[in-house]
Design a binder for these strands. Sequence first.
DNA 1: CGGTAATTTCAGGAATTACTGAAATTAGGA
DNA 2: TCCTAATTTCAGTAATTCCTGAAATTACCG
Lengths: 192, 192
Amino acid sequence: MALPPLIADFVLHFGEMGSRWGINRTVGQIYALIYLSEKPINADEICEALGFSRSNVSMGLKELDSWGLVRMRHLPGDRRDHFAAPDDIWEIVRTLAEQRRRREIEPTLTMLRAAVLENPASTEEKFAQGRMREMHTLIELLMSWYEDIQKMETERLVNLLKMGARVYKLYEMKDKLFVVKGGKKQKENDNG
Amino acid sequence: MALPPLIADFVLHFGEMGSRWGINRTVGQIYALIYLSEKPINADEICEALGFSRSNVSMGLKELDSWGLVRMRHLPGDRRDHFAAPDDIWEIVRTLAEQRRRREIEPTLTMLRAAVLENPASTEEKFAQGRMREMHTLIELLMSWYEDIQKMETERLVNLLKMGARVYKLYEMKDKLFVVKGGKKQKENDNG
DNA sequence: CGGTAATTTCAGGAATTACTGAAATTAGGA
DNA sequence: TCCTAATTTCAGTAATTCCTGAAATTACCG
């Protein structure tokens, strides 16, 4: 790999990170390289830069494509495929989140939904089912939040993130602001 | 594995999920089993239930312990170690988030911080550095939000999640609210 | 302490996953 | 259409990760 050190470090790091995830090293490195390229790059350039075989790169690109993480481009006068990552990094984040939802969360929810409907045959199963119900509720909550958020424009989302927990203070305050209750603090309690 | 089907399905599912993550199948299954158990269970029970060797279970438990995901307990009159997951599922979520921050996000930030300070030697590196800067900014933003959120009590956090994107409307409105109290019709609805 | 139950370590084999080169396929251009 | 460059597939091998049983260690009890 004869890459400039700045780029090489990043690429190696994402190779490592990829392998901590389900993604393999090669694929992580390929994506890192594409992400850092100003122009779309072709498979041979990737082979050259990372020292992988052509077929390995081909498989890696296919994988990245199945995740919707790369765009295929054709440069004029060159019939090779060239690959690029979206310019907007938020688009990448959204794609990742969406794919993980489809691939990991949905199947889990399906399994939990079925489990929760089952008829427990023993105390043991009854308890287990309760645990699954808790998990199901939690994931549903996170997903409904996520769907809300996913719809927002990036600029708004960034503002919201910057607000962090302060947003909650606002939320707590709203009743006072609108309803002008006698200055009493109200507490909500809804354990299910 | 002679587990009730309800439990077996869940355990197998989390084995699969584990392996999509960096976590291996065995560890995923062990944790699933512990999570579903009403009482703390010991290593032999895990071997028995899942059909793994004693040493494999030992390594799995060690791994889970290093993630802070299991509690070791000692039952009176029994000198074997027993393992349990926290009763509160939110505690599990928080632990997972925190560990991933430590293990994946922090190292990435360290790498990016260094890269951003580097002196780019070419146009290529300059562009790459810009991309890294974007990524760095994004992760910093997500992390500052995460830290804010992590501090909140669960009850509050749940409320905030239930609000979803509506919280943003509140935020947009806040300036108006303070100045013009009650000019417009306002409705808020947040029961879950 | 000595004895034993419980747990951990670890070397080696089993299983899985990753990678390659050769062959097959696809697609653009004449 | 044929020719050729580009890409993909795939069977075999390399590399890695996982799992086991045996041995070592640890921890409890008298």
